[in-house]
Structures are given as C-alpha cells and as structure tokens.
Design a protein around this nucleic acid. Structure first.
Length: 607
DNA sequence: CTTAGGG
DNA sequence: CCCTAAG
C-alpha cells in the first residue's frame, strides 16, 4: 500500500496533460519501436516503478485505492508546486548551474540529469561544448549512449530491508531521474512513506554537470514574419555542430529545431496512455502492460518474513536535448523537461534485473530462486532500465497545420496552475512567445537524445561509443537502442514531405511569372505568406522540380499530376526569366510582350 | 538572411 | 527536402 502510494505519486509527476505541445516527433516512434523477445513488460515510467516494486515484493498488496491515491497525490503535488518559488527550482543546492550569460534568447541544452526525490526539480543545462568535454572526447559518439545502460550499485541495507539505492547508468549523458531519498517499497503500512511520497524534493546530482553554452544558444529570438522565422537553421545548426564538436548533437539539434519551428514533428505525447494505464482499474502493485510482468510471477516468496524490501533510489534515463528560449517561463521549462521525460519513458522502457551482475531473464522465477531474498546480500541486486519497451500508442501523426496548437486531450490531471501562468493554456503566453503567433514555434524542443542516435552506421558508432560499463550484460543493453532503431531516426529528422497541391503550384507559377526566378523571398511573401511550412527555399526547389517536370514526358511524371497548362506556364516563365535576368527585378509582373505572346498570360488566375 | 545549386 | 557556399 505504502509503496503503492509512492508510486502513484511518482506517476503523477509525469502526468502533464495540457502541456503545450512541444514538438513531439517521431523520435518517439523510435523509442517505441524496439521489439524485444523478452517477456519483460513494456511499460511506462510509472509502470516501471510499479513493476519493479511489484516484482520484488513478496506479497502483492493489492491495494485498490490506486485511483484515489493517484488523484490525491496529484492534488498535493499541485499544491506543492504552487507554494514553491520558481526561483528555487534553479538555485537549489548551489549546484544548479547558473545560467551563463546568453546573448540569445534560446538555448539548447542537454539535460544531463535531474532528480526528483522530493518536490523540487532542478534542471541543469549544459552547453554543448562543455557537454563534449564532459562526455569525453569520444568524438560524436557520445550520444550513442542513449540507452539505459545499466543499473546496479545497490546499497545493501542492514535491517533486513533491501535498499536499491541506485539503479543508474554510468553514462553521463543520461538524464537522471533520481530519487535520492529512497522510495521505500515496503509492505508494511507506513504513513511516513506515504507522506514522503507526496513531498518529493528534487535533488541535484552532483555528479552530473550541466552547462550551457552560448554556442548552443541561438537566435530564435524575434522573428518578424513566418517567412523569416523559418529561415534560420542551416547556418545556425551548422555552427552548433561545429561548436559542439559532434555530429550526433548536430543531428539532434536540428531535429529539434525543425520540430519546434513547424511542428513537423509528430505529436507523440503519451500522456493519455500513461494516464490510462495508471488509471486502469486492475492496476495493481504490478503493472502488466504487455503481458509482461504480473503479480503472480513475483509473489512466490514463502512468507512474509522472507519478503524483500527494497527501495529504488534512482533511475537514469537517456540524455535529452532541450531547447528553451530565454523568454520562456520557468513553467514552460518545467513542462519541457516533463514532456521530455514523459515521452522518453512512455516510449517504452523495460526493467532488467541483475543479480550478481547477471541479468535475470526468466520472469517466472521467484525472487528467492533467483537469489533475491532478505537473507542474501541484496547489494548483489541491480536493476537496469532498457529502452525497448513497446508502446502501444499509435504513432502520432504530424499535425498538418503547425499553427494549430495541439492541446493535450488528456488533461485528467490538471496541471498545476501555480507552476506557471502559462501552464494551463495550450497556447503560450506572451512571455513564452517569441514569434508572432505560431504557437508551435514557441514550444520547447525536446528530443530524447537517444532518438538522435546514429543513423547511418550504427555499428561503427556503437563501437566508438563511450566506454561501456564493465558488465557484459550492461554492454549489451547499452547497445540495444543503437541497433534497434537506427534507421528510423533519420526519417524523424527530416521535415515531413508535403507535396504541393495544384493550387499551390498555380500560386507559385503565378508569382514567378510576375517576380522572376531570383526573388524567392518575394515569391514567398507574395504567394505563400501564410504558408508557414513553405519556405522560400521550398518554393525555389519546387520551381526547380516544376521546370524539370515540365521538361519531361507526362509518362515520366509522378505524383499528383500538374495541369499541363501550368507546366506550360512554367516553361514559359522559365524561358522568359532566363533571358531577362536582372530585369524587372524591381517588381511587378513582367510586361514583356514575349512573355505574353506565346500564350494567354492574361488568363492567369488572379490572386 | 537570401540565393543558387548540388545532393 | 537538405545542405552549403557565397553575397
């Protein structure tokens, strides 16, 4: 019961309903993609904890108060949040990284770690450049550390109880969710525990350093028009990659950028799923999400006296990249981190149990059979978090219109209004907004670093990875993510394809006829001012293909057929402007007779 | 930031 | 659609 409450509490932490959709992306897909033969249940973060606990507990305290507990906790948390000065979030422990002086408004950071033992959350930021240092000079492979590499280090407890103080990874790139204060999983009803659960203080992990680098900061500051807005990237990102010194980071950031920019990413929060699971009526001490774990499998232990008590001190999750404009509120920052974590965890995580450093794969075995008992030296017990859980949530689709903010449908657990004024609104508040109105663009970027991992040569990357933990098992685990879904990643990074409609083509042709082929920005402004997803580069490219299309035989054309009439105009304009470079550059439709002579230009569709 | 052009 | 070089 007690432990249950605790779990609920934890779960609550992840339940952020109305979070303004940060760019979710397909990364999530990656996370969910992994398939494992293991019987390990695939579960979400909360479930994870629950599972662990349940697995180890001898007696399945079938508490039925889950729902209530859950809600109750949620409430409390909200209050807590409310009372907590925003400031403390970052200034605690003096460890918190003081924000360097940024010149720009937005910074991309790597969240190396954060923990949430009690109630405070401290987020540290790390500048890419430093990030590199931190992770060693393993080249751009640092990121490969995606997975949950391993867990271990269990601090035995003398009093018969088992305390798994840590379940973390060596990987420093991992985002650490730590529960410094042991979350006791104890069968013995204990109010203190329950209370404890409601007051989680975030404790900063001193081992993990996060920095911010101005290099990684950017200039997504004040855009004026959508057109302009959507143009800063390549250079910028390039810079970042250079500064950061590693490819992976570059990739990740780019992805972030894109996502933020136009919500091309897929909205993949799984809050809903998480929530549902949590709410599941038969959700007991053990979560059985995918036929994986079940109470039965772990309640073999003979008697109560042989029960095993343990507490999981911390879990570490893969590194996350977060981009937050300086103008963002603390609240949005919180949400960002929360979302990142939620996505990551909900994406699918499995728990591995290590006994004496060896992974126990047989879920059917009892703890005692496995050597886990109160009489054993529990320090031999370890847990690992493995990516690879399979999410059942359907892949999110890319929102067609980036301008339309997606509001979290599942706001069962209302977000604390106290956290930030902007919290309850799907739409960022003024202080959150950088751009003129594209909500999406203002959303924070979160990308599980893991998903950013190698794309082309996973094998080589994994090889060059950061030093892996000593344990063989651990190594294997660490590599899993890499080999599991490397390819997918690439796709996620690319902007979704959006074939031009005939209408768009027409508008483009029209504009080019009037402006020529060397003024894409103007074309954009004139004909695609409101098409945020069409950059002038896109238009230029489209024109390029149009010219090509018009030059080939209809049989060779693909995709939605473009009316020959338009193609004719394309060639006409192409020919015209090819001979009149520099002319009419000023503006206005070309009056050159040649242009109109060949065909009835006058019939051009107006606006 | 824009263009222009190759990938 | 991406990336880059160049202005």
């Amino acid at each position: 019961m007690v432990f249950k409450r605790k779990l609920d509490c934890v779960s609550v932490a992840f339940d952020y309903p109305n979070i303004p959709k940060a760019p979710r992306s397909c990364r999530r897909k990656v996370l969910n993609k992994s398939t494992d033969d293991d019987d390990d249940a695939k579960m979400c973060a909360m479930d994870l904890l629950a599972s662990l606990a349940g697995k180890i507990l001898e007696e399945g305290q079938s508490s039925s108060a889950s729902s209530n507990a859950f809600e109750g906790n949620a409430q409390e948390i909200k209050q807590e949040d409310h009372h907590k000065p925003v400031k403390s979030e970052f200034s605690d422990q003096g460890n918190s990284v003081s924000m360097p002086t940024y010149e720009n408004t937005s910074d991309k950071c790597v969240v190396n770690s954060f923990s949430f033992p009690d109630n405070d959350g401290i987020l540290e930021r790390t500048p890419m450049s430093d990030h590199k240092k931190i992770h060693g000079e393993t080249g751009g492979n640092v990121n490969v550390n995606t997975g949950f590499e391993q867990g271990e280090a269990i601090d035995g407890m003398g009093d018969g109880g088992l305390t798994t103080n840590t379940c973390n990874l060596e990987d420093k790139t991992a985002l650490v969710v730590q529960l410094p204060k042991p979350v006791c999983v104890d069968m013995i009803p204990n109010d203190s525990l329950a209370r404890h659960g409601n007051h989680t203080n975030l404790v900063r992990d001193d081992d993990e350093k996060l920095y911010s680098s101005r290099k990684c900061s950017n200039k997504f500051t004040s855009y004026k028009s959508p057109a302009i807005r959507r143009i800063r990237k390549s250079k910028y990102w390039k810079q970042v990659s250079k500064d950061c010194g590693h490819y992976k980071a570059d990739v990740g950031i780019k992805a972030l950028y894109r996502k933020r920019k136009s919500c091309y990413g897929y909205n993949t929060w799984k809050h809903e799923t998480i929530y549902k699971r949590r709410r599941s009526p038969d959700r007991s001490s053990v979560v059985t999400s995918d036929g994986g774990l079940c109470n039965g499998s772990v309640s073999k232990l003979p008697q109560k006296r042989d029960s095993v008590k343990l507490s999981i001190k911390s879990f570490r999750i893969p590194e996350l990249f977060i981009e937050v404009p300086e103008t963002a509120t603390v609240g949005s920052l919180k949400r960002t981190v929360m979302e990142a974590v939620s996505v990551l965890l909900s994406g699918g995580i499995r728990v591995g149990v290590l006994v004496h450093g060896k992974k126990v794969r047989d879920d059917k075995r009892t703890l005692s059979q496995t050597g886990i008992s109160s009489e054993e030296n529990l320090s031999n017990l370890g847990f690992t978090l493995e990516p690879g859980g399979t999410s059942k949530v359907p892949l999110p689709l890319c929102s067609e219109d980036p301008v339309v903010p997606t509001t979290e449908p599942t706001s069962l657990c209302e977000r604390s209004a106290a956290a930030s004024p902007t919290l309850d609104s799907g739409v960022p508040h003024a202080d959150d907004v950088i751009n003129s109105g594209n909500v999406v663009d203002n959303n924070l970027e979160l990308v599980p670093y893991q998903s950013e991992i190698s794309v082309d040569e996973p094998s080589s990357d994994s090889r060059a990875l950061v030093p892996l933990p000593a344990l063989e098992e651990v190594k294997a685990l660490a590599i899993v993510p890499l080999n599991q879904k490397p390819k997918r990643t690439e796709l996620a990074q690319r902007r979704a394809r959006r074939p031009f409609s005939v209408t768009e083509v027409e508008a483009l042709v029209q504009a080019v006829e009037e402006l020529g082929t060397g003024r894409w920005r103007d074309v954009k402004l004139r004909a695609f001012e409101n098409a945020d997803h069409r950059t002038y580069v896109d238009l230029k490219d489209k024109w390029k293909t149009l010219v090509h299309t018009a030059s080939i035989s209809p049989q060779q054309r693909r995709g939605e057929p473009v009316p020959q009439e338009l193609l004719d105009r394309v060639l006409k304009a192409y020919g015209y402007w090819s001979q009149h470079q520099g002319e009419h550059q000023a503006r206005g439709a070309p009056k050159d007779p040649d242009m109109n002579r060949g065909r009835a230009l006058d019939s051009v569709v107006s606006v």
